[in-house]
Design a protein around this nucleic acid. Sequence first.
DNA 1: CGCTTCTTTGAATTTCGTCAAAAGGCGTGG
DNA 2: CCACGCCTTTTGACGAAATTCAAAGAAGCG
Lengths: 240, 240
Amino acid sequence: MAAPEIDPRALADMQLFRGLEGTVLAAIAARARVRQLPKDLRIFSQGDQGAHAHAVIDGGVRIVQTGADGAEVVMRFIGPGEMFGTVALFTDGRYPADAITLSDTLEASWTEAELLQLMARYPQIAINVIRILGGRLQEAQHRVRELATQRAERRVAHAVLRLAQQAGHSTVDGTAIEFPLRRKDVADISGTTLHTASRILTAWEKAGLLLSNNQRLIIRQPAELRRIAEDAVDWSEPRM
Amino acid sequence: MAAPEIDPRALADMQLFRGLEGTVLAAIAARARVRQLPKDLRIFSQGDQGAHAHAVIDGGVRIVQTGADGAEVVMRFIGPGEMFGTVALFTDGRYPADAITLSDTLEASWTEAELLQLMARYPQIAINVIRILGGRLQEAQHRVRELATQRAERRVAHAVLRLAQQAGHSTVDGTAIEFPLRRKDVADISGTTLHTASRILTAWEKAGLLLSNNQRLIIRQPAELRRIAEDAVDWSEPRM
DNA sequence: CGCTTCTTTGAATTTCGTCAAAAGGCGTGG
DNA sequence: CCACGCCTTTTGACGAAATTCAAAGAAGCG
């Protein structure tokens, strides 16, 4: 197991500390709380008080929001080098979603107060936070537009492509998505139901666009998927 | 009409400059570019380069994103004291949406470089920006969940309530929303069509929940609207 | 007063969620 | 090694919600 210490060079790759010098990074690393976490651990829960700034060094985290009615939406998957828990910073300090590890994960975190001190001393950090939040906001707005205007099939196509881009690696068969994805996960990212997601993915598999095996997705024809995401092709029709 | 000068006290009410002293505010006001803009003016367009930090002093602005297919979504309405154009800050400098005045509007803006200098000198400003972006992100995520899981009527209810909270002022009849809202605007914030929005609002008006006159909305029974937003009451049914 | 923009309303159509049920996989424990 | 149970996936049928199509009124503005 990794000891709770951290290589400052790992920080250099993080968006949060981009543009800082080595000595500064070392100071920041010294202040970090670093933890090795098991798979399926809940790092924080929706409504929890006491916001920290978190970052994934290795592994992955799923951010899920649950509504009063129990409906779940996956807000985001966090990979190495990305920060999370940012929304609550400097506001009411309550996390707006659950964060759960996708696999064994090495995580660093800082308290709000620490981050505040760091930002006061190194304004570049504040700029970085602003940049990160701006990017997330842009992404969220993009999703809002998708959900508001596009049909389920297109949204699923977008979601799969996004995942492939974010966490895909090439194999002989095509681009494989690293982590296991249940149909329900796909549905919860795409804003549809388990059933609709299943129908769509099955149709695509029959059409040879992708492979689905044991919760692993492999994209075989990204170009076609992109056509579906952008144009209006209906692959759910029987095809021979 | 207002000359292109600005009362520092107006800045004190802005989220962006909260917590700053009067002398500082005066300095910031001196650097601002202030413009009186006519109704329906496009302040910036999706894809434009050269991001500024903008703020509405008086009036209102509609932020609209348009997809490749021409579908429009209203990302947000900006009222007095709110900033906009924030997403593009410190990233690629390209605005991700159009900004159009809802009525005659007094607007202040600062270049990215100016804001950078101000933040370096007054770190509180950076904190404020982070807080604003965090809030916006939270709101966007909330909308994602809404769109992914709720029916049109509920979404419209939420949208109206949000607007009332954001830009409502009390009148004898109820809470009036400051800026003019076409049915299409309501539809585009709620993620539905002009027609559905019209049907829903008309039903509510018949039920006495709100008044709609000349693109002005007045909420008469916010409690009932909140019931619709949270519970599952169907006010579109004929009722006598 | 005519034109443009906005709103309302009806009817047909479609997508998608809901209900229901069965089949497939995988691991555990007998 | 097989049986059992749990979780996941598939599939069909149905219905409801909402978009689409169509058209007519209403209201503001020049």
